[in-house]
Design a protein around this nucleic acid. Structure first.
Length: 1030
RNA sequence: GGGCGGUUAGCUCAGCGGUAGAGCACUACGUUGACAUCGUAGUGGCCACUGGUUCGAUCCCAGUACCGCCCA
């Protein structure tokens, strides 16, 4: 059955993809070829950047995975032992969100109603049913991962690996627990990482409040202009502060001014009344406030602002937490009056600790329980009512009476402010002081920096290494705990601190008596203290650690059984019961020591950070781990250099002491055709699957590849994709042409090109070798765009534009068989070389044409070298194509109809030119539409002139020729030639050029000048002739 | 405010010390033994600006302007 006119992507891609998957073409080691001495094939491995299990393929994924597939296919065809490891990550927040939404949609019980265990079952159910979307989409893109190895950060060996790493890092002191300010998402009620925060500029306001000095004190407030002239002098009893978040003022610990700020020097150290609160806070001097911004005085709320937090830490200010996990004003704890009384004691120097400070709820009763934004309104209203807003006098005219009033209006500046939003929840992130687990990144960052500095790991493009260094050199502790359910639960168990200093073994007999028991049981003896904790891989292991602790206690408590309970409350209850039971029965076997596991899970990036070793089976030392680790290349987007790449580097180096990858290729962002970031809200998102439906995966892949210039964003337009779809069609039709000319009959793929005699055949074989060299060089350097460009130019510009045309006359001559063989070989090479970028259409052509032993995906990549380039054929074909171009151009400009075949005269022809003509006569005649060539002493009147190297031709066009047009054409060419010649002459006339320029440059200039002068002479002669006839 | 990029044909981008390139778009012609998802020919550029280095600068250096991105 003859081939169709176009490649049916929709039909063929589905079929081919299915076959690739069924035949496991991407399995690790497929098509691996041992070395010449039987040594094992060189490994080449890539870890897919795991998409979220909830993810759907977007343009960034399509881009990222196209590049990976190109590298993998290229290496696989070259006989490397390849592994492309696929998988997904469990995406804590995203998945929990998706499943919760699904529960709500189907009117099932909510997460909280279900409880942790039942909810997690729902998550797994969802994962089984819907978690494979993106994997299927990757397959549509043509990705040849080893699908049997699909990994998931919550399955297989991952849980064990993650827990093991946590425990080991904890034991090495690399992980610690602490109360820190973190990004808190009030919607999901969890800490989130910087990565998950989007800082957006939004319209906000700046309010200005007066904090009145204590004890009715006043000071001279003086403002000066740049020249030091006094512009304002007044006596003030307040300091003016500016804030965009008035509600946080309830937790202020101080007002800070810059130490150099002359305006406030006299009042640093004095106290001010905190409005709406019965507290005094100090004015402190700190480097943080910008004296030129606002009033120069800043309120410091350590528990709700990252900058303030640093100031509070530097100045040991108390940090009062104002909000609960949903960012409502706190309603817990003691009444305000009590809390504030204690706060005043603390301010006066009473000893305290951060637990007590955190427990103190300093939100006045009237604001308790309010949402933070509601509280803001109230606070503003109340401060205005107290007259403590900075205000200005404005004139108002009463409409009825026409009388003027002067009223004071609070100053509220409308202002653009940067506000943090949760990237999933879209709610405003609240900096919140909470207990979290941290990786002490400062301790593990060294090797990650060194690996890149020393070049063990290369980051491309180089400038992205700067980003990497910058971030790692300024690294912050990494908050790894999340207040979620879906994830790896932290392997830490807590127990009640029953080792209070107050415990008193009254008899000194090291045994527990009733009085002592009572003391332990008494409320407050232990359950208000911070629990003790241990970290271990499981309950049994952690139990042993608690047993070691218990050994310090009097008998029989030192032999209490460690049991696991749900939480702290359950522990208190269980212990109380056990002690009571013991008091009654004196049976020590009933004594238990309850422990409960940390409810938090680990940041998804913590497990993703172990992706390279985790997917290879670590902690088991699997053969895959030995073979494919460290991995060869990581292909990833620039946006996760810090969050993922840097963390993988740190963690792999910390855990197994090896770099995770040799090269990191960082690609840019895919934007829309106007250069805008694709976003759902802008509605400019191009869905790769839609594009694949419309144009085929090959076209989408080729487009992305052709645009993958290193370090530059891509502007994707459908026109471009359509263009490359046409490119696929072009190749398709070249093969179809071959088929119609029986090129494929009996053809089997040969590594070596056929022996060819025709110049055109020898030439195209050489061009193929050049193309291979270019593609190899480009891919070696990760210049995907150059590889695509080289192939486009070769396949379309050389093979289709010229070679197929040359073949037409050759098929009618003596060299037909050789030409058929050459064409088959060349088209084979097109398919092979294009395969990594356009796998589907090439695989289909492979199957459709010739006699093939196997799939193209497992066909060997060619290795021929520049020896295939025939310099003579190259020169000759340049002459031939140049001549054809000249004739066509002249014809077109003379408006000679294509259908008209012309007779041509050779007015001059040297031996080389004559030989070239002789060998390629049929080609030239056909393509230039020339009927005959005869020698002539000179061109007749009314002929157009064609100048070629070593030859001059004339085409008599008496009656047809437009003399004016021909004159113009020649004049234009001449002008251009003369301009070029003049430039060359000028350069060669400069002795300094001859002196300092490289020899070959000088030679080249001379040769060029000669050629131009020669051609110009011919054109001038032609012009002279034209002048003669009119 | 700090850092990093960019500015080349109408558009999207390559190039990078030695004669300015591609694709798309545009114009004209064209069913010539595959391809109209095509062919042939063509139009179109003070390579942002100002200096400097150099025999020679779109390319290297410095500054200016504008536009992005990242981090505060």
């Amino acid at each position: 059955m003859p081939m169709e006119k176009t490649f049916n992507a929709a039909e063929a891609e589905a079929r081919i993809s299915k076959e690739w998957i069924a035949r496991k073409v991407g399995r690790a080691g497929a098509n691996a070829k041992p070395g010449p001495n039987g040594e094992p094939a060189k490994p080449f491995s890539i870890m897919i950047p795991p998409p979220n299990v909830t993810g759907v393929l977007h343009m960034g994924h399509a881009f990222n995975n196209t590049l990976q597939d190109i590298l993998i296919r290229w290496h696989r065809m070259r006989g490397f032992d390849t592994l492309w490891q696929p998988g997904t990550d469990h995406a804590g927040i995203a998945t929990q969100m998706v499943v919760e939404r699904e529960l709500a949609r189907t009117q099932q019980p909510s997460r909280r109603e279900l409880g942790r265990e039942a909810f997690l079952e729902k998550v797994w159910e969802w994962k089984e049913q819907s978690g494979g979307t993106i994997i299927n989409q990757l397959q549509r893109l043509g990705a040849t991962c080893d699908w049997d190895r699909e990994a998931f950060t919550m399955s297989g060996n991952f849980p064990e690996a993650v827990i093991k790493v946590f425990v080991e890092m904890y034991e090495k002191g690399l992980i610690y627990r602490g109360k820190r300010l973190v990004n808190w998402d009030p919607h999901f009620e969890t800490a989130i990482s910087d990565l998950e925060v989007e800082n957006l500029e939004v319209a906000g306001h700046m309010w200005h409040f007066k904090y009145v000095l204590a004890d009715k004190q006043t000071y001279e407030y003086v403002e000066k202009d740049e020249d030091g002239n006094v512009t304002l002098r007044e006596t003030r009893n307040y300091i003016s502060i500016a804030t965009t978040r008035p509600e946080t003022m309830l937790g202020d610990g101080a007002v800070a001014v810059h130490p150099s700020d002359e305006r406030y020097k006299s009042i640093v150290g004095k106290m001010v009344h905190l409005p709406l609160c019965d507290r005094l806070i100090p004015i402190i001097a700190d480097e943080y406030p910008d004296p030129t911004f606002g009033s120069g005085a800043v309120k410091i709320t350590g528990a709700h602002d990252f900058n303030d937090y640093q100031v509070a830490r530097r100045n040991t200010l108390p940090m009062y937490r104002l909000m609960d996990t949903r960012a409502r004003m706190r309603a817990d704890g003691a009444p305000y009056a009590e809390a504030v009384a204690r706060a005043r004691e603390i301010a006066a120097g009473s000893p305290t600790d951060e637990i007590e400070v955190d427990a103190l709820n300093l939100v006045p009763e009237k604001y308790r329980g309010l949402d933070r934004f509601e509280a803001r309104k109230q606070v503003i209203a109340d401060i205005n009512a107290l007259g403590l807003s900075v205000s200005i006098l404005t004139r108002e005219i009463d409409e009825e009476t026409g009388s003027e009033h002067l009223t004071r209006v609070p100053v509220v500046e409308a202002k653009k402010i940067m506000q943090p939003f949760g990237d999933r929840s879209k709610v405003v992130i609240e900096p919140m002081l909470t207990d979290q687990w941290f990786v002490d990144t400062a301790k593990i960052v060294g090797p990650a920096l060194d690996a890149v500095r020393k070049g063990d790991t290369q980051i491309l493009p180089e400038r992205d290494a700067k980003v990497y260094f910058h971030w790692l050199e300024n690294i912050e502790p990494w908050c790894i705990s999340r207040q979620l359910w879906w994830g790896h639960q932290i392997p830490v168990w807590y127990g009640l601190d029953i080792w209070p200093t107050g415990f008193h073994d009254a008899e000194g007999d090291d045994a527990l008596d009733e009085v002592e028991l009572f003391a332990l049981l008494a409320d407050g003896a232990y359950n208000h203290a911070e629990p003790v904790y241990h970290c271990a891989t499981d309950l049994a292991a952690v139990g042993e650690k608690f047993m070691d602790d218990l050994a310090a206690l009097p008998a029989p408590l030192n032999h209490a059984r460690v049991v696991e309970v749900a939480d702290r409350a359950a522990a208190v209850e269980t212990l109380a019961k056990a002690l009571a039971d013991y008091a009654l029965t004196q049976d020590p076997t009933h004594l238990v020591y309850p422990v409960w596991r940390d409810a938090d899970v680990l940041d998804t990036w913590f497990s993703s950070g172990l992706w390279p070793i985790g997917t290879l089976g670590w902690p088991e030392n699997t053969p895959e781990l030995q073979k494919y680790f460290p991995t060869s290349v990581l292909v990833t987007g620039f946006d996760i250099i810090f969050f993922w790449v840097a963390r993988m580097m740190m963690m792999q180096l910390a855990v197994v002491g090896q770099k995770p990858f040799g090269t990191v290729y960082v690609h840019a962002l895919v934007r829309d055709e106007k250069g805008k970031k694709m976003s759902k809200s802008l509605g400019n998102v191009l869905d790769p699957i839609d594009l694949i439906d419309e144009y085929g995966a090959d076209a989408v892949r080729f487009t992305l590849t052709a645009m993958a210039a290193m370090g530059r964003d891509l502007r994707l337009s459908k026109d471009r994709i359509a263009g490359y779809r046409n490119f696929g069609t072009k190749l398709w039709n070249a093969c179809r042409f071959a088929e119609m000319n029986n090129v494929w009959e009996g053809h089997e793929t040969q590594a070596a090109p056929p022996a060819a005699t025709a110049t055109a055949n020898r030439w195209i074989i050489g061009e193929t070798a050049k193309a291979l060299a270019e593609v190899d060089a480009a891919l070696t350097e990760y210049r995907f765009d150059q590889a695509a460009d080289a192939l486009y130019k070769f396949v379309w510009g050389k093979v289709c534009d010229w070679y197929v045309e040359f073949a037409k006359p050759l098929f009618d001559g003596d060299q037909a068989e050789e030409t058929r063989q050459t064409m088959a070989w060349v088209l084979d090479q097109c398919m092979i070389l294009l395969h990594p970028i356009m796998p589907f259409v090439t695989e289909e052509l492979w199957a459709t044409t010739g006699l093939r032993k196997g799939l193209l995906v497992h066909t060997d990549w060619p290795t021929y070298g520049p020896d295939l380039i025939d310099a003579e054929a190259d020169r000759e074909m340049t002459w031939v194509t140049g001549l054809i171009d000249e004739i066509r151009s002249a014809r077109a400009q003379m408006h000679v109809p294509v259908s008209l075949k012309l007779d041509m005269l050779a007015t001059a022809m040297d031996a080389t030119a004559a030989a070239a003509w002789e060998r390629n006569e049929t080609l030239i005649k056909r393509l230039a539409r020339i009927e005959s060539l005869t020698a002539a002493a000179q061109a007749p009147k009314g002929a157009i002139t064609i100048a070629a190297e070593g030859a001059s031709f004339a085409i008599p066009l008496e009656g047809i020729i437009d003399i004016g047009a021909e004159k113009a054409r020649l004049a234009k060419s001449l002008e251009k030639l003369e301009k070029e010649a003049a430039a060359l002459r000028g350069r060669l006339a400069n002795p300094k050029f001859i002196e300092s320029a490289k020899e070959e440059v000088v030679d080249e200039a001379r040769t060029n000048l000669e050629a131009r002068e020669d051609e110009a002479t011919k054109l001038r002669a032609a012009l002279t002739r034209l002048a003669e006839i009119g």
